[in-house]
Computed example of a mutant assay.
Amino acid sequence: MKRKAVVLLSGGLDSTTVLAIAKDQGFEPYALSFRYGQRHEVELAAAQRVVAAAGVARHVVCDIDLRVFGGSALTADVDVPKHVTADEISGDEIPITYVPARNTVFLSFALAYAEVVGSTDIFIGVNALDYSGYPDCRPEFIAAYEQMANLATRAGVEGKSLKIHTPLIDLTKAQTVEIGQRLGVDYSLTSSCYDPDAEGRPCGHCDSCLLRLKGFAEAGLTDPLTYQESGT
């Protein structure tokens, strides 16, 4: 019998690749997505497409309205920063697209889900290279959370050590795309943009779009998504 794993799935490039990695490693994935008041809720439709294509055991979408706190361009009436090239993206400060404590919240729900389905493995697509400004994407955060999780759960107390898998944490976006390509990921199903239009087309100029486009370019591949501006 395959080991069960909870996979945090936004519907974006990274989490979709992580889902493929979990399956490739022999896990039976249980996907977990969130409707948290994000302006790019179109990603949930992408998550549904990814789940249908991957054939996961179960997909849960949790509702958490982080708009009650705001504090981010993704959950408040704040403009999403736009750039011309990926080189303009700075990792020296925490960007306005950071959602306060989001990964801490998401991992807490994943922890509960894992206990219910009898899993001791959680996969999350955090990356410390592309998003070095996000405090909850760092290896030390994941290590500390994993330690806490093993103290806070019935499974941990009973000696069933929980593991948080972060297979992309030290990879470039190009390396992530290359792994996905090798595993047969259909990136046309995904959505990465922070500020898509009404039709769900990516803007091509937010941090997430530019890093995605850079990753495909450096991998020598073409992003299958259709962007708002022709030629992007």
Rank of each mutant, 00 (worst) to 15 (best):
V157D: 01
S161E: 15
L171D: 04
I122G: 02
V117Y: 04
E199P: 00
T190V: 04
Q228S: 06
Q228T: 13
K160T: 07
L183T: 10
G156H: 02
T222I: 15
D197I: 01
G156K: 02
T176I: 15
Q181W: 07
E218F: 10
Y187M: 04
L171E: 07
T190W: 10
A174G: 05
Y134S: 12
M148L: 14
I179M: 13
T226Q: 14
K160H: 14
A152H: 08
A155V: 05
L189N: 08
S119D: 03
K160S: 09
T166M: 12
Q228K: 13
D186P: 02
G180C: 04
G215F: 04
D136M: 06
L162V: 13
A174F: 06
S191C: 09
L210S: 04
A217G: 02
V157S: 07
I124A: 09
G133L: 06
Y187L: 07
H165K: 11
I164W: 04
G133A: 08
Q175L: 03
L189R: 06
N150K: 14
V185A: 09
E158R: 15
R212Q: 11
D130K: 12
L168N: 02
E229T: 14
L189K: 10
K160W: 01
F123A: 11
D121C: 06
S132L: 01
H205L: 05
S230H: 15
A217S: 12
C209W: 02
R182V: 00
K163C: 14
V177K: 05
A144L: 06
S132H: 11
S208A: 15
E158Q: 15
P135F: 07
V177E: 12
D207Q: 03
F123C: 11
D170N: 13
C193P: 03
S161F: 13
V157G: 00
N150Y: 12
E140L: 10
G125D: 05
L171S: 08
T120C: 10
N150M: 11
I122E: 02
A217F: 01
V185R: 05
G204W: 08
P224G: 11
A198H: 12
L168H: 01
Y227V: 12
L221C: 04
D186C: 02
Q147S: 10
C206M: 06
D223C: 05
P196F: 07
I164T: 10
G204R: 09
A149W: 01
S191L: 15
L221T: 07
E146C: 00
S192C: 10
F216H: 08
E158K: 15
D207S: 13
Y187D: 00
H165V: 05
E115L: 06
R138Y: 12
R138D: 09
H205W: 01
I169S: 05
P135Y: 06
C206L: 08
T176F: 03
C193D: 00
V116D: 14
L189Y: 07
L129F: 03
D121K: 02
A143I: 06
I122Y: 01
L225A: 14
K160V: 03
G180A: 04
G159P: 02
D195S: 14
P224W: 08
Y131L: 13
P196M: 09
S191D: 00
S188K: 14
C137N: 14
S119F: 00
A219P: 08
D186M: 00
D223Y: 03
S119A: 15
P167W: 04
I122R: 04
D130S: 15
E140M: 04
T153Q: 05
G125K: 01
R201Y: 09
P196E: 09
P196I: 02
Y134G: 08
E146Q: 15
L211R: 10
G159T: 03
S208I: 12
